[in-house]
Write a protein that binds this DNA or RNA. Sequence first.
DNA 1: TACATTACTGACCAGTCAGTCAGTAATTAT
DNA 2: ATAATTACTGACTGACTGGTCAGTAATGTA
Lengths: 216, 216
Amino acid sequence: MKNTEICDAPCRQRRKEARPAELMAAALDLFVERGFAATKLDDVAAHAGVSKGTLYLYFASKEELFKAVIQQGILPVLDQGDEMLSQFDGDAGALLEALLLRWWELVGATHLGGIPKLMISEAGNFPEVAQFYYDNVVMRGRGLIRQVLQLGITSRQFRAMDVDTTVDVILAPQLMLAIWRYSFGPCDCGKQDPETYLRTHIDLLLNGLMVAEKKK
Amino acid sequence: MKNTEICDAPCRQRRKEARPAELMAAALDLFVERGFAATKLDDVAAHAGVSKGTLYLYFASKEELFKAVIQQGILPVLDQGDEMLSQFDGDAGALLEALLLRWWELVGATHLGGIPKLMISEAGNFPEVAQFYYDNVVMRGRGLIRQVLQLGITSRQFRAMDVDTTVDVILAPQLMLAIWRYSFGPCDCGKQDPETYLRTHIDLLLNGLMVAEKKK
DNA sequence: TACATTACTGACCAGTCAGTCAGTAATTAT
DNA sequence: ATAATTACTGACTGACTGGTCAGTAATGTA
């Protein structure tokens, strides 16, 4: 993970453009692993292959670094969701499935998957960041799924339901899958793979537990 | 939340028996709200109405306090689940519903509901505690739901499924509901109430999204 | 009342870490 | 080459906090 050095001997490099992204990536890794308060800026800097002083050239404080990590992390991904929705071909179930699988591919399976855990852990300590995340990520993600559900209901593919609540119920297993990787992941080696989990989630979501003939 | 004082003037009380429970309750509240590292022991002690020195009479270190909070917090509740399972009357859907609702009543809605968030946030920093929690709480909780699913399958009420994976998918919305209260809860005032959420979860779980006649 | 016991206190200490800044070396300009 | 610029360094500091312990007061005992 540590920035590979081009010189074999310890030597300075001047790479003004690359530093902020490298520092934010290192900070995300450590914040997710240890929590914000337990992460030392010396460690973040070392992980990015620079000294602590350099970190302060690009971020004014530990809190500003945290904000930057959250704000630039997730936003670009949501655009992809909007695009997928615009290509709706009439099968609401397939669209829902595609969205949930793509989310895993772009977020859950990458290091961005740590952001939900980080944000949940630290929301109480950074109300402004939490509000930003809530307005720009949570609400937008919910909006995406809500639109799919409404498409499914108006086209008579999905039954009537409390749409807003259902959105949260649908997102919960996706989020837990990502969160789990960064918390109990190491304890839970026998766990089935994410693909199986997502398949089970989507199948259950669409069809439920009950045997078909008994459904009212 | 602060321990009410019997004397109106600041005065000492000797209550050896009550202290540990009061200190653990105060610690749970603050650990959940702020995270382990960001919680000061002076604040925990003040919340429990004692001085920091008193805290050290009952707990050897901050980490021991953390362990105590986790270990004695959840365990008693799981016994209730076992008991409910033993009174199975033949309706697997109803038993599953009863278990999930009761979990919310006993854990999610009480201050114990903070423990999942706390454990998820700190699992990486306390591997031994995480292992304890995993073995004694996670596995036991999973086992409960798994038994219900198997009862439902053998009695032909539930369709065939990947039982172990389904268990995790079922538990995820329950956990997220509890976790949310202690993270984005304050940001999310317009949110629907837990009862609606649980009803929606259970209904979706049993019946799925698709309209009945279209199910294969 | 006098003494013994012990729950409790809070000032203190030692270690840690966010944030600083004078100095260094890589790069560019002349 | 020499100078000017600036990305970068790491020793330092001040504030903060986990943990200690000598002392205090509440309670029990005779």
